[in-house]
Design a protein around this nucleic acid. Structure first.
Ligand code: ZN
Ligand code: ZN
Ligand code: ZN
Ligand code: ZN
Lengths: 149, 149
DNA sequence: CCAGCCGATGAGAACGGGTATCATTATCGC
DNA sequence: GCGATAATGATACCCGTTCTCATCGGCTGG
């Protein structure tokens, strides 16, 4: 493989190709996002960058995420709390969905082949051209369930 | 059954029991929502009511929906566009999920036993107490796919 | 290497769905 | 009817996200 690149390097190169320019904010956001395996919000990214001394503006965080989304480089995750979260799109082998604890807000990723198979079968048999699907499970996590034992 | 009621009548009675009072706004919202089988937004309900001459305030719409949600009388549907939608909870036999067209915004409900089975198996085998799940399929609907034929 | 073009950036205003507040209205037990 | 009190509606507010615009800075022609 000539391009033994990380997701971050690949994403940066792809973004650069679109406009012919690069920039510091973009690079910082992409590199930080690249260290995550599961979803992060724009505000979390912004706060983390500012905490380490960066001067990135929140607008640049959103702009970068929007660009990544347009190019299919991130997955947009909506857990129903009105906050958009993003995670690097690393391909089918990393595809997963999320469990959300209603009590403590913890987010846990999970993958299930049977679920994916059911979704694919469903997509194929419908009159729609399905190109994405989201699944969110809600309930109580191990720490929060049965606190009165 | 003594109470051969519609969903709207049942919901109104249940809400009334919680506070001992009834009101016009509440009744209008519940009755209108009861005529829907699939998801509607608070604004859509409000607009429809005002259009027919009602003086309901948007706050009452949200308050009613919140009360219905607390009592499990509605399903809260999140399609990822930042707008909360609601549909009457009429029981398992009416349980369904949604397909959303990215082009025209059309929402189409669907039900699939295999999908539900996969979700139940998944919930049982996890360390979580899953009590709700959401599935959203996204893509192009029949009208919007292959416009160049 | 330099000047200058033009996209990228950041501060802050604007936007919009949803919530909180509060004075007023309407319901229910008496 | 009367009073206590929940329900209501107008509106201020909150907060995540998007828009605006003056400035900055990466790239390219010279
Ligand atoms: Zn994830
Ligand atoms: Zn928890
Ligand atoms: Zn529906
Ligand atoms: Zn469509």
């Amino acid at each position: 493989m000539v391009h033994a690149e990380t997701w971050a390097e690949l994403a940066l190169e792809r973004l650069r190709r679109e406009s012919g320019r690069s920039g510091t904010a973009r690079r910082e956001v992409v590199e930080l996002l690249g260290r995550h395996d599961c979803c992060v919000s724009a505000l979390e990214l912004h706060d983390a960058l500012r905490a380490r001394g960066s001067r990135v503006g929140i607008a640049s965080v959103y702009r970068t995420l929007e660009g990544l989304d347009r190019s299919g480089l991130v997955e947009r995750v909506d857990l129903g709390d009105g906050i958009a979260r993003f995670e690097p799109a690393r391909g089918d082998e990393h595809h997963h969905h999320h469990f959300l604890c209603d009590d403590c807000g913890k987010v846990e990723p999970f993958a299930d082949p049977a679920l994916e198979a059911a979704l694919e079968r469903l997509a194929g048999g419908s009159g729609f051209a399905v190109d994405a699907h989201d699944v969110v499970l809600r309930g109580a996590c191990g720490d929060c369930r049965a606190p009165v034992t």
